[in-house]
Design a protein around this nucleic acid. Structure first.
Length: 863
RNA sequence: GCCGGGGUGGUGGAACUGGUAGACGCGCCGGACUCAAAAUCCGGUGUCUGAGAGGACGUGAGGGUUCGAGUCCCUCCCCCGGCACCA
């Protein structure tokens, strides 16, 4: 056993042992409960970043802990390998995306291994391999058959930088989720997946996920956006140039406030609405306004702050209940994509309509009343929109009805006329998956001049993506690949062309967890082993996937279930969203408005007398640099720390321990170099203690100290086990430190208490720092393999105490301690408390009003 | 605006169903070792006050419940994240 702690050799030895014994190979095993622990798989971008290390360490701690607790654990790993960075790298380096990707995978796999993760590498997959994406294609074809997948041409979000379509979920504040470029609207044909068909279930099943963070469920519920209301039509006889009624003489709207229908004074339609287009034909002013709206709506980011503007179309539609004519306006706030692209406007009871009516001097008509408050057209008041207390007024036969009764009555009346009914409206849209990109899964469709778009027959799958293309930045390189493009129509046999769009890479990640859980050799998407492992017991990943990936995966799972491929309805039982990794940010702001960021290692950091960072000096030019506070590690801010450098300097165990100790998994983690050193110092102390222990140590200590130490160790262990159940690994790490401190205090190291305590310490720490604990366990003769050792449980016998410490309070304030026999009676305790000098002093001769005794805890004397 | 999560020393963060606030680590201060430094080890470290024993104050602010509140209730302030012309 080496005298000093040298992590590199220790870690290598431990990893070799795990490799050669295939320690993490997962097999079906029905005598043990199963535990499927999954971390979101990485995109092979080049090398691991700290976020990866944190993510996978959390997963590994959970995996190893459950393994030791007797679970049959599966922890797989793979690669989310399709995507744009590979194409961008290809353009820069003139290397095919495939080669770039496979090289990155090889390098990152080595890094993952050097961190000692307990991964079953036999299940490794990469989504860019044909044997994987074949099943994307196969399932897509099944969805086509079922009508879940379909083709349509519609206005889509176009990312001008990545030159591709984005799903609604991928547009954040009007910008592309990857590029940050302002998204444009384009009309493009593409394939869509009918996720809206599952909206109801996706929303309802959130309640079946108690193991998910509340905020993720809220975000999904908001995204799905269910609202109850009434869809109804205003009638008209407006005809187009050919003399045909526009939309059969019906202008449909959706409202959640049908009870205010008698307060309608105008309607507003989106710029894209057919009535708007019709009215614009003979009205150049209106046409230019509509044009402006369409252009304006490109910038979704500005929409929220944009003024509500509108213009009268001059058209009138008929109110379905009163028969009165209602003017139709074009409003820049009406969205073509939500509801019907047209709304009824009730200025009296909708704040936005109110503002609009005031601006354009449109009539305001009160139709509900709350507690007889007086309505004033001059100013908006909260109660105008109060649906809970509103009672219909000025509403003819509906007068006196409350919200619910009014909606029911009005919906019934509308239905009788065939002009409306209650309806549920969703915010969720179908998922557009066509991407005009090369490095992705080909959509298995063949375009034939005679037969149209024809699905590729199953036996011709997979449609293999050529791996040797080198994109040059000018569109999809597949368009130039005649060998890929040219094929024959499966229906008529005539020459035809392949679809060149590829699938959104979120398709790839929507079912990989089910593939891991299967035997790959079977010629199917998944096999029945998936029903053994699934659902994932613990999923770990970043909060940034709260909507996109997690919603798509839930949808995909339900589709697979409905196709009879799997038996479960939800893929992830428990979800842990780990916090970001932060580091100091330093920058300079020259007068020209530019920002120059500095990596902390280029700087001498300046602290105030309390040790707080206040600034820095550049090592290069000696001039000052501003401190910007803590922020997420990122390339652009130049504040990333390379995990490899940490592993090389301190070893994987130190990196793992620091990450687990510095903060709880769900919170942000601040990277602090001195904290990393602290973690290393602890491991070195642990090693040195092991060396002394192995050498036989000194004489045994007094029995009393032994008993106290043993009590302390088992108490700490009890708390640590509780903390583990809550995934609070920072306090588990601190428990390990406490145990070592206690053992250190017990200078003699050859007695049974130390042996027991050290074995508890090693096992408690094994999930977090697997290498050092593996070696110490073996070298010190505790056993062959610490992974096989039983998880330590506190012993009642060690927690037994004859004497306990009781806290003494006067009026709830701490005044002293009492050490008493555990068996002391309440009367004895009261007596002892009153006799205590400090209590005597505060009593000052008076009698106690009341004495509260909490057994085993405290005595409070009330004066 | 709506929804969700927070606010505790110099600092990251602890605190079981209300029961010794600040565990554990970092930083800082002092000491030992050393020619010296680094490393290591030992001690101290919420604020104010006091020579000291001690005392007072203290978990964003204010109120309340309670023998006792970081924890429960009410009002308010601030921060972070998500959603948002959604009809």
């Amino acid at each position: 056993m080496q005298a000093d702690y040298h992590p590199e050799s220790i870690e290598q030895l431990a990893q070799q042992y795990w490799d050669s014994s295939q320690a993490f190979r997962a097999k079906r095993e029905h005598r043990k409960p199963k535990y499927y622990c999954l971390s979101m798989f990485p995109y092979p971008s080049g090398k691991l970043h700290m976020g990866h290390v944190r993510n996978y360490t959390i997963g590994d701690v959970l995996s190893r802990y459950h393994r030791m607790k007797g679970y049959n654990v599966l922890q797989p790993m793979g690669w989310d390998a399709f995507g744009l960075p590979a194409e961008n790298a290809a353009i820069q380096n003139r290397v095919p995306p495939a080669k770039w990707t496979y090289d990155n995978i090889a390098y990152m796999k080595r890094q993952l291994k050097s961190l000692g993760f307990a991964i079953d590498w036999s299940r490794e997959l990469a989504t860019c391999r044909p044997d994987y994406y074949k099943w994307n294609q196969w399932l897509f074809l099944r969805m086509l058959e079922k009508g879940i997948a379909y083709k349509k041409t519609q206005v889509v979000n176009w990312d001008p930088v990545d030159q591709t379509v984005l799903a609604n979920e991928q547009v954040i504040e009007g910008r592309g989720w990857r590029t940050g470029a302002i998204v444009e609207k384009r009309e493009i044909p593409g394939y869509y997946l009918g996720i809206t068909q599952y909206a109801e279930e996706l929303l309802a099943d959130l309640d079946k996920l108690p193991g998910w963070p509340e905020r993720v469920k809220t975000m999904q519920a908001n995204w799905i956006g269910k609202s109850y209301g009434v869809r109804f039509a205003f009638t008209h006889d407006i005809r187009d140039n050919t003399g045909a009624l526009i939309d059969d003489g019906r202008m449909w709207v959706f409202t959640t406030r049908a009870d205010t229908i008698m307060g309608v004074t105008f309607c507003a339609v989106a710029a894209e609405h057919p009535l708007a287009a019709h009215a614009a034909e003979n009205d150049p002013a209106l046409a230019s306004f509509i044009d402006k709206c369409k252009r304006g709506s490109v910038m979704e980011a500005d929409m929220a702050t944009m003024d509500k503007e509108g213009m009268d179309t001059g058209l009138k539609v008929m109110h379905p209940l009163t028969g009165e004519p209602v003017p139709v306006w074009v409003g820049n706030y009406v969205l073509m994509g939500y509801g019907e692209g047209a709304v009824m406007a009730v200025p009296a009871h909708d704040e936005r309509d109110f503002g609009f009516a005031r601006k354009y001097k449109l009539p305001i008509k009160q139709s509900i009343s709350v507690r007889n408050l007086s309505f004033d057209e001059a100013a908006w008041q909260e109660w105008y929109a109060d649906k809970e207390h509103g009672i219909c007024v000025n509403s003819g036969k509906y007068d006196g009805l409350n919200y619910e009764a009014a909606v029911d009555a009005i919906a019934t009346d509308l239905a009788e006329k065939g002009l409306g009914e209650k309806k549920v409206q969703w915010r969720l849209r179908d998922w557009g998956i066509s991407r005009q990109r090369y490095w992705g899964c080909p959509i298995p469709i063949i375009h034939c001049d005679t037969c149209g778009s024809v699905p590729v027959p199953d036996e011709q799958l997979p449609v293999v993506l050529p791996e040797d293309c080198v994109p040059d930045g000018s569109g999809n390189p597949l368009l130039k690949r005649e060998d890929f493009l040219n094929t024959y129509c499966p229906k008529c046999g005539k020459p035809a062309r392949r679809e060149t769009d590829t699938m959104d890479t979120f398709v790839d990640s929507s079912w990989y967890y089910a593939r891991y859980a299967s035997q790959f050799k079977s010629g199917a998407m998944v096999d029945e082993e998936t029903n053994y492992w699934m659902p994932v017991d613990q999923y770990i990943g970043g909060i940034e996937h709260a909507i996109l990936h997690l919603l798509y995966s839930r949808f995909w799972t339900k589709v697979m279930r409905d196709l009879g491929l799997v038996e479960y309805s939800e893929p992830f039982s428990n979800l842990l969203t780990q916090g970001m990794v932060l580091n100091l940010i330093f920058s300079r702001h020259p007068d020209n408005g530019a920002v120059e960021y500095f990596s902390p290692e280029e700087l001498e950091i300046i602290k105030d007398e309390a040790g707080r960072v206040i600034g820095a000096k550049s090592l290069a030019d000696g001039r000052t640099v501003d401190f910007q506070g803590m922020g997420t590690m990122s390339k652009s801010k130049r504040n990333g720390v390379d995990p490899q450098a940490i592993i090389d300097q301190y070893g994987a165990d130190t990196a793992r321990l620091f990450m687990m100790f510095a903060s709880p998994p769900e919170q942000t983690l601040e990277w602090v170099d001195s904290g990393v050193e602290g973690a290393f110092r602890f491991l070195r102390r642990l090693w040195n203690f092991g060396v002394r222990f192995g050498n036989g140590g000194g004489p045994a200590n007094a029995a009393h100290l032994q008993k106290v130490t043993r009590f302390e160790i088992h108490s700490v262990l009890k708390q640590a086990n509780y903390d583990l159940s809550k995934h609070q690994f920072n306090t588990v790490s601190s428990a390990a430190m406490k145990i070592l401190n206690a053992l250190d205090r017990l200078a003699g190291v050859d007695d049974e208490v130390v042996k027991e305590g050290f074995s508890i310490l090693l096992r408690l720490l094994a999930p977090i720092t697997p290498h050092i604990t593996h070696i110490l366990w073996r070298e010190l003769g505790f056993g062959e393999d610490i992974l096989q050792a039983p998880w330590p449980e506190p012993l009642a016998e060690a927690l037994e105490q004859d004497e306990i410490e009781i806290v003494l309070q006067v009026n709830g304030k701490l005044r002293g301690n009492l050490t008493v026999a555990k068996t002391a009676s309440k009367a004895t305790l009261e007596q002892l408390a009153l006799a205590h000098p400090s209590v005597q002093k505060h009593l000052a001769g008076a009698a106690a009003k009341k004495i509260v005794v909490v057994p085993g805890r405290l005595i409070n004397v009330v004066i």
